[in-house]
Design a protein around this nucleic acid. Structure first.
Lengths: 344, 344
DNA sequence: CTGAAAGCGCTAACAA
DNA sequence: TTGTTAGCGCTTTCAG
């Protein structure tokens, strides 16, 4: 019964006894070309009868717009990226866009190839969630991409050069909130387990930490700032080092939840606990840390995703728009590890 | 410098001083048409100079293959789906496929519309991760999709009718392993917090539970099986009911990790703990439950995703292939909640 | 209001 | 070995 070949607009035209042009007009709901109700109904019927589906590839070629958004994430397993992706999808739905998804596996070369691929599919724009890498790499990449003219917004770690649009969480603000919270709980010896200092997120969170101390009149002790990577192991070793200090901190702000997990591991290995022995606040609100009762900063990743889509679509309309840099507000999530009563 | 319009194969041909045919041959690396090294180099140079990118849309139209795989997941935030997606991507990479991703938001109508959309993009195949819904809905959907002729594999909850290919975890086996583990730890009053009995996963896990008891010669007590949905709240209420039994269970097998989380909540509200008061095993190994120390069954979701892709590509080659039903082996993940020493 | 013709970017059969 | 021609499924002038 059903023919092997997918029905084309030609088949619909034939069945409705009109030309392909008319079919196109009707199916695209073009109100400018007034088409008699009777004809329109015939076309619609024929299309339904053949279960005709418009071919978006052909449309893409013809109109130069595919309604496809390319998305690159470092990896799929991290709940932060998952939430970003969820925000991207939500916003894409509102504009009739579909998502062509790809992951870079935290690898520059792979990322480059994937972007290339997305371009071959003629995506209308790109949202690229960057991972922690050398600033120079990001800049080089940004320059290349910007030259291609494809609307592209970077998300998470941003390059300092304003070549491309960017969306990030308001990290200095978020870090400050985290540290202020610890200060409010009565701590004055607060350490920072730092992330990569080669990327904006690492730098900004460290700045926020320093700002909070300064504003509260607390001294900034260099020995209280350790670590250099957003990794569990780095957090573990970092906290161990802090504990071995002559005058160890009573509270710790970790630059992300992975680092915080490492800190928790370190405490456990010494038979210590948070918040009893050390109050701990993380950053990022990873799903996995909920069970550990980690107090942390939520970056509102889905809002980041949504804004990124808005931004890329805006640039699609106006290529000359001055490069945006959008910061998303964060929120403190209080759980056990900081020592605040959750009832409060 | 860079022209506004994307370079076409025509531009490349002109620059290389050859015809579009030759360009096509060279760029597609067709070894059958012997092309002199000199010409080939000229074409390649021209392509690079113009930073020409082949248009996969045009290719898709022409060859009837887009190298696009449509993927539908219920939602992006659940780490199970994230891991499935990761497996899908991994396998797609190996075959040069790209993923057009969509989510159904646990809604039949939305799901239908999304699939429609994917078809308009002429995806070569579909992997559809189903969510818990009425069997009749799945069957109706399967019939419709199967009629369209698009290669499609269902993943997770499978319909009983073998209309489409399906991939699931080996749930009876997995459930049995979970319960056997509790039995081995010395429990004999083991309850089951059941999931939806309208979907394969819910039914199979319940079967596995019963099988394990039977094989160990333990009685199957109807009052020990409660609940009917894969929800946190259902688990909470279920465990509360179990605790109120005259002779409450000493161990509980929850049909998924959400239910298990509810059970943990229930225990907490009574001032009880796992494994001290009740030993608990979940199912699914959700990321979020790691911190809670929940012993659970890992479904190897990435393997599920990989197999699904293999399956859909196989059917693309051979539409007449007899419908597959692939079961993926599970694995017990021992943590605190079951009371086994993790050192063992 | 509708159809014929051109053409998007590309590949493939067939000549030359 | 290369170019010519046709055509994939579609939209869009432009006549009628």
């Amino acid at each position: 019964l059903t023919p092997k070949r997918k029905p084309s607009s030609h088949d619909v035209a034939e069945r409705a006894g009109v030309s392909r042009t008319t079919v196109s007009y009707v199916l695209n709901g073009r109100t400018d070309k007034a088409i008699p109700e009777e004809t329109r109904a015939r076309v619609l019927d024929a299309a339904r009868a053949l279960s005709y589906r418009s071919n978006r590839l052909a449309n893409g070629i013809l109109r130069g717009r595919t309604k496809l958004l390319g998305v690159v994430v470092p990896d799929l397993l991290n709940s932060f990226y998952a939430r970003v992706l969820q925000g991207i999808h939500e916003e894409c739905d509102r504009y009739g866009y579909s998502v062509l998804l790809t992951h870079s596996r935290n690898d520059v070369t792979a990322e480059q190839r994937r972007v290339e691929l997305l371009m071959e599919y003629r995506v209308d724009g790109l949202v690229c969630v960057t991972y922690a890498r050398r600033e120079a790499d990001i800049v080089a990449w940004a320059e290349e991409t910007s030259r291609s003219g494809l609307p592209c917004v970077l998300l998470d770690h941003l390059p300092s050069s304003p070549l491309l649009d960017g969306v990030a969480s308001h990290d200095t603000e978020g870090a400050r909130t985290a540290v202020e919270h610890l200060i409010r709980l009565g701590h004055s010896r607060i350490a920072h387990l730092r992330g990569d200092q080669t990327v904006s997120t690492g730098v900004d969170r460290c700045r926020g930490y320093a700002a909070a101390l300064r504003e509260s009149g607390l001294p900034l002790d260099g020995r209280m700032v350790v670590g250099d990577h957003f990794l569990v192991e780095e957090g573990r070793k970092g906290l161990l080092a802090l504990l071995d200090l002559p005058n160890p901190p009573t509270a710790v702000f970790a630059a992300n939840d992975d680092i915080a997990e490492g800190a928790l591991l370190a405490l456990e290995s010494r038979g210590l606990h948070a918040p009893g022995d050390v109050a701990l606040v993380g950053y990022g609100n990873l799903e996995a840390m909920r069970g550990f009762g980690l107090t942390t900063i939520d970056q509102n990743p889905s809002a980041m995703g949504r804004r990124a889509v808005q931004c890329v679509l805006a640039r699609l309309e106006d290529a000359e728009m001055i490069p945006q840099r959008i910061l998303i507000a964060t929120q403190l999530v209080v759980r056990r590890s900081c020592g605040a009563s959750t009832a409060a």
